[in-house]
């Protein structure tokens, strides 16, 4: 079919508007991903590399540090994300009550941590959690503990510090997503539920949660990616230690590539582990969302 001048113009403009972005994304996103696939078959250190076939993939299976990093990332994910999402939901529901006093003040206070840079707040947390630091002082004064907790030198407590830090920084962020979603919920649904005699707790679990499901799924995906990206905090507070108890995937790739003799081939292989994990998790989350939607 012959195209008119107008049709050609529309096509030309359509491409012209998106082209700068597509070129940049091709260059700095798609090309690196594909290239790193090729790199992941290279072995050797520094500039000395050669084709190694599946050697890097075999190395993955025996890499104790990688397994440790995976376990740490999973711990952060399994424990931190649910705590944060539940807290954020509770805050959002509490703040959504129009009769609550000081709503604006509470909202601003809870949101404030989002303003800080990851590096700045992690330095703050490092200073607060030092062995004679303010946190231990307060806990000792309140007689919660008898002796100071070795926050940053004990593997268990170091993880707790990281989890608390991330929760502090990101709960308010998730909260505003829920608040925005709650504001879009038709108020008369709650009025109808009250007239029907549905108790508050049931209104929360049977009405609020199902209505917020898409947003909860979205924030869960964001948090998942966030956990896999986790770098700034651990690098600044614990540097992955003690005994690699807080080593994350991102940090491990960074160490492989930029600490001591770089091994780009193998770090590219580990990068692809992340890509695969993201793909699998996204797929699972997508399926869960679809099943739930079908069930309801």
């Amino acid at each position: 079919m012959a195209q008119t001048r107008l049709d050609r113009g529309e096509q030309f403009n359509g491409w012209a508007f998106v082209m700068p972005a597509l070129v940049l994304l091709g260059l700095f996103m798609i090309y690196p991903i594909i290239w790193s696939l090729w790199m992941s078959f290279q072995v050797g250190r520094g500039a000395n590399t050669s084709f190694g076939g599946l050697a890097n993939i075999q190395r993955l299976a025996n890499d104790a540090l990688l397994i440790k990093a995976l376990i740490n990332t999973s711990i952060f994910f399994v424990i931190q994300v649910p705590i944060m999402i539940v807290l954020a939901l509770l805050f959002a529901v509490a703040l959504n009550d129009p009769t609550l006093k000081f709503r604006g003040l509470f909202r601003t206070a809870l949101f404030l941590p989002c303003v800080t840079s990851l590096i700045a707040y992690s330095s703050l947390f490092k200073s607060m959690f030092s062995t004679d630091g303010i946190i231990n002082q307060v806990l000792l004064t309140l007689h919660v503990i008898g002796t100071p907790i070795p926050w940053l030198t004990d593997p268990f407590w170091a993880r707790i510090v990281i989890i608390s830090a991330i929760t502090w920084r990101w709960t308010g962020y998730n909260m505003i997503f829920y608040l925005a979603a709650l504001q879009n919920v038709d108020k008369s649904i709650y009025e109808a539920a009250r007239i029907d005699g549905i108790p508050a707790w049931a209104r929360f679990t049977r009405i609020t949660i199902p209505m917020l499901k898409p947003v909860i799924l979205f924030t869960t995906i964001l948090s998942t990616i966030g956990t896999l990206q986790l770098f700034d905090e651990v690098n600044n507070i614990t540097q992955g230690g003690p005994a690699n108890a807080t080593m994350t995937l991102s940090m491990y790739i960074y160490n492989l590539s930029f600490r001591m003799m770089p091994s780009f081939g193998y770090s590219a292989t580990v990068s692809w582990v992340i890509v695969v994990i993201v793909a699998v998790l996204s797929f699972i989350q997508f399926m869960i969302a679809r099943d739930r939607r079908r069930a309801s």
Partner: peptide, 12 residues
């Protein structure tokens, strides 16, 4: 591609 973390890109 939105969900690919930066960590996967930084080496290449």
């Amino acid at each position: 591609l939105l969900s690919i973390p930066f960590a996967a890109l930084m080496v290449p």
